[in-house]
């Protein structure tokens, strides 16, 4: 399937549908059978990033731009096509997530999955650990963060350029072993 036609079809799509503004549950799937609540956003520093995400799944690659703003109790994520066409905007404030889905592209992970991956990447592990299933662990090791299930299998592997510190690290790669996709992340700043 030619990805470009989705980017380009925005012109048509915008004619046919209005933006969908809807609250979604602050939860995410870790595997096909394991769902957990997302932590409420809480940041003790301002975080901003613009990234080019390249998804690899089933031998195909699809790219997406994300813009991320995080401060205090608010996290905003905007997804754009590589041509700059807005695909979605997520605002997570307090306990409420509002998603504005402008264009849906089936080749890309859902907006909520992207939000989840971002939160796994940038939130302190202390905010995640209480929400994980019994026996699961989120571990920071040097330039890596691992989500490990109760059978000690790696579910998600996140890579960074820096070791852990008090500053939020920007991820460079996310690999989801259960869902089978990988995201290469290039910072655009």
């Amino acid at each position: 399937m030619k990805r470009i036609q989705y980017w380009l079809m925005c012109f048509i799509t915008l004619l046919l549908c209005s933006c969908a503004n809807k609250p979604i549950s602050p939860e995410t799937w870790l595997t096909k059978g394991v769902k957990v609540n997302l932590p409420a956003p809480h940041f003790d520093q301002v975080y901003h990033d613009q990234q080019l995400l390249t998804f690899s799944y089933n031998g195909q690659q699809h790219s997406l731009i994300t813009m991320i703003d995080a401060q205090n109790d608010a996290l905003s994520v905007v997804g754009l096509s590589t041509l700059g066409i807005r695909l979605f905007k997520i605002d997570y404030y307090g306990k409420v997530i509002t998603t504005e889905q402008n264009i849906f592209i089936k080749e890309l992970p859902s907006a909520s999955q992207i939000l989840s991956d971002i939160m796994f990447s940038i939130l302190p592990i202390e905010q995640w650990q209480p929400l994980l299933p019994k026996g699961w662990q989120l571990i920071d090791t040097n330039e890596q963060r691992l989500l490990i299930n109760e059978q000690q299998q790696t579910v998600i592997e996140i890579k960074y350029r820096q070791p852990p510190s008090s500053q939020i690290r920007k991820p460079t790669n996310i690999k989801h072993y259960i869902f089978g996709y990988q995201i290469a992340i290039s910072s655009m700043e």
Binding site: K2, I4, L8, M9, F11, I12, T82
Partner: peptide
């Protein structure tokens, strides 16, 4: 036709006869 190339990825092409609406 329209063709998009990102980095080293293969070109993606859309032709007028495939997307006449566009």
């Amino acid at each position: 036709r329209m063709q998009q190339i990102i980095g080293q990825q293969p070109p993606q092409i859309i032709r007028a006869d495939e997307q006449p609406q566009l």
